[in-house]
Simulated scan of single mutants.
Amino acid sequence: MQRKIGRIVVRRAPGRASRGILAAGLLRVPCAIGRSGTSIVKREGDGATPVASMAVLSAWHRPGRMVRPQARLPIRRIRQDFDGWCDAPQHAAYNRHVRLPFPASAESLARADRLYDFVVVLDWNIRSRARGRGSAIFLHIAKEDYPPTAGCVAVAPKDMLRLAPLLRRGSRVVVLR
């Protein structure tokens, strides 16, 4: 049985504001972070990864796109044209899962690329929401060569398969300056 990790630390990689190193126990893997690097004052659309300690809440998996990782988390199935995430700060469902089509701005979880084939929901602005403080801050799959994210932390699919068994509800992803 895999050991559970309570704390996953993300540090910026030397010399590259949008690249990081994720550490979980003895595991060290490269990761992508926000195009604006990290920020202690996260705002919607700023492209920054929040400097914070965020609880792992749950995960989403897209069947048929990648093997479902083993994790001690609630994992929901992503449904095409159904599952979305609201990123409209003025809407009551801001930074929440929504059913598509949705009347306000919302991102589809069934993306054409592979980013959300497995996505871990982090408690950034969820349990205690503030309008405009940022939405959809996830741990998800990275694109080839780790280009910047919009504010999430992203790892290679093979690294997600290694990391997922270490995650449990309440584990923390700690992003450092």
Rank of each mutant, 00 (worst) to 15 (best):
M1D: 02
R12W: 03
R12T: 07
P14V: 11
A17R: 07
G20R: 05
I21L: 12
L27M: 10
L27C: 05
V29P: 12
V29C: 10
P30R: 01
G34L: 08
G37C: 04
T38M: 15
T38D: 15
T38Q: 07
S39W: 14
I40W: 15
V41W: 11
K42G: 02
G45S: 11
D46L: 12
T49I: 00
M54A: 05
R65M: 10
M66W: 10
Q70K: 11
I75R: 04
R76M: 07
R76S: 09
R77C: 11
I78E: 14
I78N: 12
D81H: 11
D83S: 13
N95D: 07
R96S: 09
H97G: 00
V98N: 01
R99W: 13
L100E: 01
P103Q: 01
P103G: 08
L109Q: 13
A110F: 13
A112Q: 09
F118K: 08
S128C: 11
A130R: 11
R131W: 13
G132H: 01
G134S: 04
A142G: 10
A142K: 10
Y146G: 14
P147L: 13
A150T: 14
A150H: 15
A154N: 03
A156T: 12
D159K: 10
L161Y: 07
L163G: 04
P165S: 05
R177S: 15
